[in-house]
Design a binder for these strands. Structure first.
Lengths: 337, 337
DNA sequence: TTGTACGCGTTATCAT
DNA sequence: ATGATAACGCGTACAA
């Protein structure tokens, strides 16, 4: 059977298309009787209003786009889950895009989205090192945009982040209190604002507790798992750190693998803590101490903020920043037993 | 600045809208010269063709929908990643929906998608226990649909699955060879086809190796983490299994927690193996033996199949079934050391 | 090669 | 309360 549209419905009921259309909106004048007839017939024929036609007509899509650096990532999956819940409850659909950390992809996604396909965008950015001004140079008014987790500091738009500086400070302090004196900081991209903030917390904690900061203990890692493990093994052998603070989850995993390989015992020889929202951190060998970010909440909050912008554009301050708190979870990997 | 559309471009260039439109398609007759002028101006004004208008006109959306039971799940995230890659390469966008295992949501998503919003659907199903015939009763022709992982056996449409029966058989056999005689099977939903297949592999392996099958050792779990842990603790105490085979990843985690709580040592007191595509299974305490499913490949293959259907509807047999192989990874949780 | 005119399905405005 | 009509932006058949 072919598509049922308003026209077919109208024919079937010997009404005009406008009357039929009215049956689906709330305000319009239409007799209760005909409305019921129409809805009944619509149900019977399984009528689905064509979204594209509505969108074209109404200039809105009831769709939001989510752009993240990667999909196969526990953290972003949780965030997307949070977003999906809110969107779904509002009757919105979500388009998902992964940049795989390629800035050009991000630019391309964003540009293309400015064609009416989405009403708003929630993004965790990929290209700190690049020129973000493309966001201000879109030919038409920029779509409502909310950053979460990874943000551009020079772009004015609402954002939802976590208290990274404090968390880093606490994590570093925790390592120090557990007796560490040579604490390696594993960075993935020093130039990212998130990288900078987290590193600053580390640096300031060292200073506060009078541990000399050593540039060499900042280890810049890559996006490649194997490479990182090799690199870390070498670094651990050369630098002999007694503590490791990883700025992202997967570097904690790489640290574990590296330590296994070169027979360093966690936590005896080296203590490890890292940013991570992995639920099964307690199941690792040894249980991993983490700074656990409220990933799902981050997504939820970002989505709620975006909807606020869509509903009351003027009531949302473009400067607004929501900071959610991460939790320091001490586990065996930093214990002194 | 307001939206740039074909009309504005045409005005700016003193051409007709049709000429401008032609510049963006390949076949049409248009002088190389004007085409270049148009494209240049389009770039300058940052023109983005309105997707909804094109879709309405062309009756296709260059969008595929992905429906999964849950998003915050390592396995489905990987699958979505695989799908996203393929789609992105083809210039397609993906809409993502999570049913949270509610069948009504699945039905609702599917029905609504039949309004032109998506050209095809990739789904891992949620409602084995229900009546799937809604898929055949859509008023218009059903959208191209590919199942992956969790499928409805009574619906005729292409599918991509893994060799679950063989894997289950092998895993059970492995436990037996490691000396287990009371092997518990942790099911999450016995009625799901995937549950049935996996359970059958377990049952047949027992039979083959002359281990008596005991109904009581089939433990039906819920979707609630805490509940499962409690339930498992009790079951382990009551039934004293010496091996556990979990049909889904999270039940392996629950098993670990349960064993920790009641001081059962894995693998000494009880050996554990489970379906899982967790990359860090080797980092668990103890390293978890797994049946590792090629999750990302599953998504990739499903997407490729869907695109084949979109491009050459007649060349794809609706009965086609692709079976990808999982890998048995023996690790410490089933060792005899 | 370029322009004119129409229709995709919907909704809002205006008329009845 | 209902119907006729125009418009959203684009793409194509047809005319020039």
């Amino acid at each position: 059977m072919d598509n049922v549209n308003i026209k077919k419905l109208a024919e079937a009921l010997r009404l005009s298309t406008s009357t039929v259309s009215r049956a689906f909106r709330d305000n319009s004048d239409i007799s209760k009787d005909t409305k019921e007839r129409i809805l009944a017939m619509a149900k019977q024929l399984n009528y689905q209003p064509n979204h594209y036609a509505s969108n074209l007509r109404e200039q809105k899509s009831k769709t939001i786009a989510v752009i993240v650096p990667e999909l196969a990532n526990n953290y972003f999956s949780l965030a997307i889950q949070g977003i999906e819940r809110v969107a779904s409850a509002k009757g919105y659909h979500i388009l998902v895009y992964a940049t795989n950390d390629q800035f050009e992809k991000e630019v391309s996604f964003i540009k293309h989205l400015h064609n009416g396909r989405a009403d708003g965008i929630i993004m965790s950015v990929s290209g700190e090192a690049n020129d973000h001004n493309y966001l201000n140079q879109l030919s038409k008014k920029r779509l409502p945009l909310v950053f979460f987790d990874r943000v551009y500091e020079d772009i004015v738009t609402p954002r939802v982040i976590t208290n990274d500086y404090d968390s880093s400070f606490s994590a570093t302090k925790h390592l120090i209190q557990q007796g560490c004196e040579r604490i390696a900081y594993l960075a993935v991209n020093k130039t990212l604002s998130i990288g900078k903030t987290r590193m600053q917390g580390y640096i300031d904690a060292l200073k506060k507790y009078k541990i000399p900061f050593k540039e060499e203990l900042i280890i810049d890692c890559t996006n490649n798992y194997k490479e990182n493990i090799d690199l870390l093994k070498q670094a651990f052998i050369d630098l002999k750190p007694d503590g490791v603070f990883t700025s992202v989850e997967r570097l904690a995993f790489a640290t574990y693998y590296a330590c296994y390989d070169i027979n360093l015992s966690i936590p005896k020889d080296i203590k490890v803590i890292g940013f991570s929202s992995l639920e099964i951190a307690p199941l690792l060998n040894p249980a991993l101490s983490t700074i656990t970010q409220p990933a799902s909440d981050l997504g939820k909050t970002a989505a709620e903020m975006l909807f606020k912008m869509l509903e009351n554009p003027n009531e949302v301050n473009p400067d607004s920043e929501v900071i959610l708190k991460s939790k320091l979870m001490q586990r065996e990997s930093t214990s002194n037993a």
